[in-house]
Write a protein that binds this DNA or RNA. Structure first.
Lengths: 120, 120
DNA sequence: GGCGATACGCAACCACTAGTTGCATGAAAG
DNA sequence: CTTTCATGCAACTAGTGGTTGCGTATCGCC
C-alpha cells in the first residue's frame, strides 16, 4: 500500500515549467514554431539576457532544442518532452484530487456514523 | 479568437504549490489531518524553522489554516482552496495538452499536403 | 575588402527566497 | 518554582530571476 501521493516527479522538469516566464516562453515557441532569444524577448517584459537564461534551462532539461543558424540561435519546442511535462502536471493534480475526494468521503462517513449514534 | 493559452493562473497559489517541500507538506497534512511545525519537520529533511516559514506562506495564500492550541500551533488543510489550486494545475496542463494536439494535427495536415503534391 | 548593424555570450551586480543556526519567550508538566 | 518543549524572531548563506555593461562574431551593404 502506498502511504504517500505518488509524486514521482522529475524535479528538474517540474521546476522548469514552474516559472511563469518559462511557461510564456514555451507558449510563444509553440505558437510560432521557433524563435530566438532576441525575437522572444521582444514579446516579453524581460530582457534578451533573461530570456537567454531561461532558454538555457529549458534546453538543459530537454524541453527545447537550440541550433545555431548563422549569427542567431534558433530554438524550438521538443513536443515529446513537453508532453511528458504536461503528463507530470496532470499526474500530481489528479493524485491530489483523488486524495481530496477520499478525505471528503471519509469525512462524510464519520458524519453518518455520528448521526447514527445520536439516533440511538 | 484567443491567441495565447489561457494561463489565468493565480500566481501566488501556483508558486505556493510550486515548491516541492510545500507539496510534501500539504501531502503530510492531508494524510494526517493536522500537524505542527515541529511534528511535520520530523518527517521532512528540513528544520522546524524552514517548515514554519512554508506553513506561513501556505497560510498566507489560504491553503492551510493555523490555530493556536496551547503552546503549539496546529495547522490543517483548507480543502476548498487546495481544490482550487489543483483545478488551476489541471487547467494549465490541459491548455498545453490541447495546443500540443492541435500542433500535431497541423503537422500531419502539412505532411498529407506534401504527399499529395508529390503524387501529382 | 571594409564597416555599421545586429545577435550572441559572459560577467558583475541586485532582490528575493529556501535553508540554516542561535536565541528569547511562553505555556505545560514535574 | 523549575524544567521542558514548541514557538517566534533575527542574522547569515546559497541559489535564482532579473538587470546592465561589454566583448565578439556574423550578416548586409557600399
Amino acid at each position: 500500500m502506498t502511504t504517500a501521493v505518488a509524486e514521482a516527479v522529475d524535479d528538474d522538469l517540474w521546476s522548469a515549467i514552474g516559472d511563469p516566464t518559462r511557461r510564456r516562453l514555451l507558449d510563444l515557441l509553440l505558437l510560432e514554431g521557433a524563435g530566438t532569444a532576441t525575437s522572444l524577448s521582444q514579446q516579453l517584459p524581460v530582457t534578451r539576457q533573461a530570456v537567454a537564461k531561461h532558454l538555457g534551462v529549458l534546453d538543459r532539461v530537454g524541453l527545447v532544442h537550440g541550433t545555431p543558424a548563422g549569427r542567431e540561435r534558433r530554438y524550438r519546442v521538443d513536443d515529446a518532452q513537453l508532453a511528458r511535462a504536461v503528463a507530470q502536471l496532470a499526474s500530481v493534480g489528479s493524485a491530489w484530487d483523488a486524495r481530496l475526494r477520499r478525505i471528503k468521503r471519509i469525512a462524510e462517513a464519520i458524519q453518518v456514523a455520528r448521526n447514527d449514534q445520536e439516533a440511538t
